[in-house]
Nucleic acid binder design. Structure first.
Lengths: 227, 227
DNA sequence: ACCTGAACACCGTTCAAGT
DNA sequence: ACCTGAACACCGTTCAAGT
């Protein structure tokens, strides 16, 4: 009788870097950042924990590889845009959508500065900044400003996802209790925070995110200030 | 003989939340984020690991409390500024200086969205945004844009500090190897990244950070686009 | 070349027991 | 009220040993 030919054991389809990364993404999506564990990964791949190290340097490597796969797909999906402004918005929205689908993404991006995933985003932003007519010497600062803003939002959203998950709350209740805390702050020391506390409850993450992008793009187009 | 009066045992000065937080900051400054451990903390305070839990809820609580102490001090030190623009720059520089002195700060801020440390910064930024004459409905977006940009930079800087420490490299060599990687990227896929790779080597973190702030401020002052 | 899985050196957190 | 420290349930990573 032939063994393992007519009915090959599916699980043993031989480990590869890509299957490991895909499984890592599935694990992260299902259980959050704390769900990515070499043991859990090994169990899902029905192999030993140490086997993974043959294809992956360490956990950081795996984490940023997972984020790179997600970002690369998001960048492919982002439409080019008719105008540079639209192109920038499209890239930003693609990242935002990816963050929404993979709440751990922001944390991964924050941990891999200058690595492939963030460079992919910077590349796309930079090209549009150039198309916008920003002079050469200012393109670096402009593209980085967009990227850093985007990473700032990512990081906060990622942390919110972790905290909400930890507290077992859904988003709405989570924001409600945050707004309540803000409005209980000392009136002398925190007038602004108290004033905007209400907006926390009603605001739309995506809208505000885009409004911030537009703000920065407007700054890039403004006539030079100073000398 | 009187015991512990003429010569009281310094270490036993009784645990308090504040001494725990100060010791945590010292530990973080000395050994980075991975240096903050309940066991290491207990050793420095010459107490048991479990004792700390009487004054602190858990490690997250401790980490954000440490960052809050640092941010509160930074906000106190930030000069008011003669103009709103100068005030915003002053706040940004104060945070940047704190990040420089405490490279773990960015990571802590990223993990505590909407908590006291970030609200302190938002408060200061928001007041200046208001003073700048930004209309009420747009103050939230404007202040958040500044904060998110600032948090994005913080996070990247914090991660760079960790990575450089891990690789045992100083900043210059670290950026050099990053620039080298960028200029080795595929010419078709990464034209922009290759073009700006050189700037990685020569750029001044602080200058670029401030230039980004100015960009956003300019965007806030620009006449409304769109309808 | 690739995989196994026990072992090592850690973690955060809890909790009975002490004072 | 506050502290002790052993114990629990985990981690990432390594490495001899297998195929």
């Amino acid at each position: 009788m032939l063994k393992n030919v007519a009915n090959p054991p599916r699980r043993a389809a031989s480990l590869s870097r890509d299957t490991i990364i895909d499984t890592a993404i599935a694990l992260l999506d299902a259980d959050g950042e704390s769900g990515l564990t070499f043991r859990a990964l090994a169990a899902r791949l029905s192999t030993g924990a140490g086997a993974i190290y043959w294809h992956v340097a360490n956990k950081d490597d795996l984490f940023t590889a997972a984020s790179d796969a997600v970002v690369a797909r998001a960048m492919e999906d982002a439409p080019a845009g008719d105008t540079p402004q639209a192109g920038i918005r499209a890239v930003a929205l693609a990242v935002f959508a990816a963050m929404d689908a993979h709440p751990w993404l922001g944390s991964a991006l924050s941990r891999a500065p200058g690595q492939l995933p963030t460079v992919r985003i910077l590349e796309r932003l930079g090209r549009q900044v150039e198309a916008l007519g920003v002079p050469h010497e200012k393109q670096w600062v402009a593209a980085c400003a967009l990227l850093n803003y985007l990473l700032g939002v990512s990081g906060q959203n990622a942390a919110n996802a972790v905290n909400a998950r930890g507290a077992g709350l859904e988003r709405a209740h989570f924001l409600d209790s945050m707004a309540a805390t803000w409005s209980r702050l000392d009136a002398q020391a925190f007038p602004f925070a108290r004033k905007v506390a209400g907006q926390l409850r009603t605001h739309d993450d995506r809208e505000d995110f885009l409004a911030g992008i537009d703000l920065i793009v407007q700054g890039m187009q403004a006539p030079q200030a100073g000398c």
